[in-house]
């Protein structure tokens, strides 16, 4: 387009770029492909770290107990929400619907989980807070979600979560409007069921007893 074909002259000798140059180019390009593939796999840990650090997507923070001196008088309502994945035959609900806490003040809330199946199952909980922007300021000190939970058939457990909401939430222009934060959990059947299988072996021996347990512990509904 920008060159004129009428000026093309044909040479009689062939001058080709050396083949090695093509080889070098190809090696560089393959390197680029390998790099991008590596990046794709690296994205998994990087994404997790990113969410943890920035509270992205409502990821909560893990913290030590807060200093008493940091408590301010402003209140925030924390709402509790519970979900169970379809593939996990558990019931799971918060014991209290909401708690009002002062910013910076440590609080404890309870959740209740019941295994309604006839097999021991390991569950693991995912969590986030809504609105997402509060994630950066929502600190958990102790949480059942830090570990996996094993529940025997019919077994019901109450599980605590201790937390505080960082008082700097009111200093952030973005989050100053947040009056209530929902803390939400979803229990999944853990991919690693080895703990449950151990229980199951013992369960065969004490089958009668287990049946009794499942009749005794009836969820309150």
């Amino acid at each position: 387009m920008t060159k004129q074909p009428d000026k093309i002259k044909r040479r009689t000798t062939v001058t080709r770029e050396p083949k090695t140059r093509n080889g070098v180019t190809a090696v560089i390009l393959f390197g680029l492909v390998a790099g991008m593939t590596g990046l794709a796999f690296a994205s998994d840990p990087l994404y997790r770290i990113f969410c943890k650090v920035t509270g992205y997507g409502g990821t909560t923070q893990v913290a030590e107990a807060p200093a008493k001196s940091k408590i301010v008088d402003q209140m925030v309502t924390v709402r509790f929400d519970a979900n169970v994945n379809k593939l996990l035959p558990w019931q799971f609900k918060p014991v209290q619907n909401t708690i009002k806490v002062r910013l910076g003040e440590q609080a404890i809330a309870f959740y209740e989980a019941t295994n309604v199946s006839d097999k021991p199952i390991v569950g693991t909980a995912t969590f986030n807070v809504a609105p997402f922007k509060a994630g950066e300021y929502f600190n958990k000190i102790e949480c059942f979600c830090f570990t996996e939970q094993v529940l025997k058939p019919g077994q019901m457990v109450q599980m605590p979560v201790t937390f505080y909401v960082d008082q700097s939430i009111i200093k952030d222009r973005n989050t100053v409007d947040v009056k209530s934060i929902t803390l939400s959990y979803t229990f999944f059947a853990s991919d690693d069921q080895s703990e449950a299988e151990k229980l199951q072996t013992t369960q065969f021996i004490t089958d009668e007893k287990d049946t009794i347990i499942s009749r005794e512990v009836v969820p309150k509904g």
């Binding site: 379809k86 593939l87 996990l88 035959p89 019931q91 309604v116 199946s117 006839d118 097999k119 199952i121 019919g154 059947a189 069921q193 449950a196 299988e197 499942s214 009749r215 009836v218 969820p219 509904g221």
Partner: peptide
Amino acid sequence: PVKVVEMNTPVQAKV
């Protein structure tokens, strides 16, 4: 659900 607990609910979890 109270009643269901007494039944032998098959485990749905993919173990």
